[in-house]
Write a protein that binds this DNA or RNA. Sequence first.
DNA 1: CCAAAAGTGTTCTCCATACACCCATGC
DNA 2: GCATGGGTGTATGGAGAACACTTTTGG
Lengths: 239, 239
Amino acid sequence: MVSKSKKQSELKYCYEYPRAALTADCVVFGLNDEELKVLLIQRASDPFAGSWALPGGFVEMDESLETAALRELQEETGLELAYVEQLYTFGDCGRDPRGRVVSVAYFALVRESAHAARADDDAKQVKWFSMKKLPSLAFDHEKILACAYQRLQAKVRYQPIGFELLPKKFTLTQLQRLYEIILGRILDKRNFRKKILSMNVLEELDEDEVGVARRPARLYRFHKKQYEKLARQGFNFEI
Amino acid sequence: MVSKSKKQSELKYCYEYPRAALTADCVVFGLNDEELKVLLIQRASDPFAGSWALPGGFVEMDESLETAALRELQEETGLELAYVEQLYTFGDCGRDPRGRVVSVAYFALVRESAHAARADDDAKQVKWFSMKKLPSLAFDHEKILACAYQRLQAKVRYQPIGFELLPKKFTLTQLQRLYEIILGRILDKRNFRKKILSMNVLEELDEDEVGVARRPARLYRFHKKQYEKLARQGFNFEI
DNA sequence: CCAAAAGTGTTCTCCATACACCCATGC
DNA sequence: GCATGGGTGTATGGAGAACACTTTTGG
């Protein structure tokens, strides 16, 4: 046992011994039709050809893990993001039938409408799935997705999340729906407004919703500076 | 670009292309002399021979990441733990002079007194360092340690942490000190007691502190069932 | 009897919660 | 004029924060 350990500490080890392969996968959440959605791709090749899976792929030797995640996401779905947050690393032995593959998972939130799903040249399909009607997924991607969903629910409580999921101009009701969807429970309208307005992250516009068959709602956008300040220090949105 | 991506998706890729090496490192926090400490080892060999570093080493092909972390910790420091929590994965390109090495970092809390630091057969040193007087560290281990410290401070707010850092029987003042040390600020004694007792995680013993030149304090231990229940659901310790 | 930390309650403020009605618009 | 969601205020309870003195022991 000890001699094994010694060997591992030596420089030679890393060239003489077999190595796990390394991938980066992305869980991208979006919001549409009043539902939380996740972006999946259909695998073109084995293993799990035809199955739905998280976008992702092998990390190259000269790129950071995050860069790999962003690149694979762009290549497989056409979605270009500036930032993904590291979620967790999945490295159990049996998770890939090809052998030992360790996957660093990332997650991101996007305004779904801004990014229509689009298949890449491999003619794989790319699709937004409602979190309520998920297909079964390749590898251990269901576990990864569950982990991401859990993180999202935790994050919503201490970060001014969710603006990333809405269009630039939005109504307070849209924002409230978003929180309700992620938290999975109904919120009181008056209390929600009181709380969110008291945080000073919203800027009321001189503009109303248009094209609705009822009283149009006031539009807001979020105040970037204030928003980023809150995002940094963390905060408490126990609504 | 696209053809590159295609190639990566193929099975062959993982056997034909160079791979990053994979390590697991541990940040182990303990408490002693009223200080927060971290367990470090002195490297016996290059790179960074003689430097202090986090315990850790290469992941083998047939063990999970967590198992590797626990094994390396045991081999290098003699410390046998049952559980470590995954922290973050560090994979930037320049972080190891030997080439591309990706490190999955773990962290843990221990009762320091229970585990005297002990050098292993390689005659490397193993030592507890106060978080206030740290040496400079090998690789990007300072970054990893900073990340772990941040996690600890966040965790203390929503998990009944810290019992892991104290002896089995402890006084309320010891527990309060622990929170003060981790949070870095003074707490009010009466409010602290009120809050911690109202959580029903403590069991008052029929026993007092001994050998102190003042009024001895009542000893407590924590109520495991209640504690684990709280730990699972997460809670709010905004004290 | 002195030093040192243990132990103990009350008040105030603020924030989360619960709750119901009128308003503006499109059709 | 009616259906639809938009928009608004108040009362109550509970939790966090501030705060000071008496008690018990060893030396």
